[in-house]
Nucleic acid binder design. Structure first.
Lengths: 362, 362
DNA sequence: ATGTAGTGTGAGACCGGTCTCAATTCGGAG
DNA sequence: CTCCGAATTGAGACCGGTCTCACACTACAT
């Protein structure tokens, strides 16, 4: 019972009620702002609350109302600017609607994602926004849907899961960007992503456990085929994560191969950065020796020499959209599942040129 | 009573107990993993829990234990990579110790900070990590300290507040970097920060409401004075925030003045980026026409031409440190208030040269 | 005077856990 | 065979709010 005797015990409605000489129920009505109370009593309670510096216990409140006023976000990696902005946007929108945000980082690991979800559900969040780390392992997400807790998938749709989705037009964007490279004369194209595979070679789309990446590669391959390029699958490079320099090694292997690609489409700004760094270190020039296009308009892409052409994803809008869909559902809306695809924008800068061999021929 | 009749009503210990044919208390002992239980009963309860897909309600748990297993973070701007990494680091460390994280963004506004703190305290977080937006307005932080809730100030110390602090050696770092510029021959130096002031001119340190910036400017001025530079205060530029292009305008005014500085020390990577962009747009070259040094080793600074020299702050370590101090206190440690100052590292790249006038004289 | 509607208030159940304490069971010592 | 203590278990209070319901009291129509 030390909690009761400690001088730092938080003030409760009962304390306020006692001081204002009313019942706990009445004090609660004033403090919670719900029932009918006479003006006189209201003032007395408010004065008592102020005098005692009363702070409502949201946990207790959530307990009885069943609503926590909180939404949970699970992202792959907050350190990644893409997710940083998404979180910012979601949290802005949430606050605007009176919700708070609990953040969890999955580090792109399903197990961590499961654990995070467990905690968030334990904390009884009113809804969830998740970027699923692995679309082959979604039983836990299915559980969420089954339990009727509002869920929005961010950036990565999952087929056959009855949840709202907010994503960008990955396939089309990749298709268009690849076409752009093909039109510049490239025939040896590579698509580089951070995904893992053992062995690290692309053998088929069933390997691709991140749905947005899958869509992009799909677009990339389709464009290559449309251009009559043979075996474009050989150009898909699963470079692995940043830990332990694995990604850098893959990129070096790719760029220093006997017949290196003349153009690369990078799946995110982090691999693109790695590619840029390797090229810089090896003295390879853009766009003379390699054309480069990356997904996501990261800060750095606009200040390099030359600046990098990118596929700009409307991350902030995606976050806002996701939060709004979620909050609408939390507030009782229950339309059929929606799938929002936001358009990307191609930003042409200076990183696309004609392939070297072609130049030599001129 | 719809909560009771709904088929989606969450499963409670009572439900599990009923199915396992034991008392609620016994079921709770198994599920909560505390009291003594016979092996046989334990298995029966666990089986029942699994069959019903029981998920403990952390809110209820927190209610009775008084601990939420959650720490609150209030940062100025998650979109800023500096804070992104800090959040990542804090959240990694927290999870390692079995804590969760609730994130709030103050947008560098005290009022938002106050509101965030109110919510976090309402949610009964076990401790708080805050980057105070304004060191002239800290009554709310004082309240936290008074209520005995563990609090760690991140990056920005506040004088006279009995809370642990984790920061970097801002004053020394600024002093050393300024000295480096002075040694390169510069006499017209500027320090550019995102702080606001009306009018936007530096009149004295009492204007500086962010303590880390204050320390840096202090170091900058001290170095200038040590070098015999007169009225170095004139070089302090309070450029304002990024909204509405105010910052860009300030930077342009500074660079296009009749007697522009020959070297700039940028207070963070965001203003530095703005400066770089303006220079690029105006065709000003680094380091020929202006030497530039920035706080924080942002991604982009290493890939520009030339790359930018920076003062590298050990953000990840700072976050880890902060989380560890906090968690130690939450777990009952109560040593006197600690002030951790982590060392920065100067990374020399290619953005420092001799001032133009000097070059002309050669 | 009686009925009736409406307003403000208090008593106490409830949310879903934890935890105290008393009751029950069982084994072994005396 | 009886008694003591350890090991389990159950009943119920408690955390700090919300919310239902009953009751007292006023006001106005019948």
């Amino acid at each position: 019972m030390d909690r009761k005797t400690s001088p730092f015990r938080p003030v409760t409605v009962a304390d306020v009620a006692r001081r204002a000489e009313v019942s706990k129920a009445t004090a609660a009505r004033v403090l919670g702002g719900y029932g009918p109370v006479s003006e006189e009593v209201k003032l007395r309670v408010q004065a008592a609350a102020k005098a005692l510096d009363y702070r409502p216990n949201e946990l207790a409140r959530s307990m009885s109302t069943g609503k926590s006023g909180t939404i949970g976000i699970v992202v792959g990696d907050i350190e990644n600017a893409f997710f940083g902005i998404a979180v910012r946007s979601i949290s802005d929108t949430a606050h605007r609607h009176g919700f708070n945000v609990i953040l969890a980082n999955s580090g792109e690991e399903v197990e961590a994602e499961k654990a995070a979800l467990k905690v968030l559900v334990g904390k009884r969040v009113d809804g969830l926004i998740v970027t699923p780390a692995d679309n082959r392992n979604v039983a836990h997400l299915r559980d969420i849907v089954r339990s009727r807790r509002p869920l929005v998938l961010f950036d990565r749709p999952i087929e056959g899961l009855a949840a709202d989705v907010v994503a960008s037009d990955d396939r089309d964007a990749a298709f268009a960007a690849t076409m752009r490279l093909v039109e510049a004369g490239h025939r040896r194209l590579a698509y580089v992503t951070a995904l893992n595979a053992e062995p690290p070679v692309f053998t088929g789309p069933e390997q691709l456990y991140t749905s947005s990446v899958k869509a992009r590669i799909d677009g990339f391959l389709a464009a290559c085929r449309a251009a009559g390029i043979e075996e474009p699958e050989c150009g898909v490079c699963l470079a692995g994560g940043t830990v332990g320099g694995q990604q850098r090694a893959s990129v070096e292997r790719l760029l220093l191969a006997a017949e290196p690609p003349t153009a690369i489409l990078a799946s995110d700004s982090l691999v693109a950065f790695e590619i840029f760094k390797v090229m810089q270190a090896r003295g390879l020039r853009i766009p003379d020796e390699l054309s480069l296009v990356s997904f996501y308009d990261a800060e750095w892409t606009s200040v390099t020499t030359p600046p990098i052409s990118v596929i700009d994803q409307p991350v902030y809008d995606m976050g806002t959209q996701a939060a709004e869909l979620l909050i609408a559902r939390i507030n009782g809306d229950s339309p059929p599942v929606r799938h929002c695809v936001l358009p990307t924008r191609f930003i042409e800068r200076g990183s696309i040129g004609a392939p070297r061999r072609l130049m030599a021929a001129i």
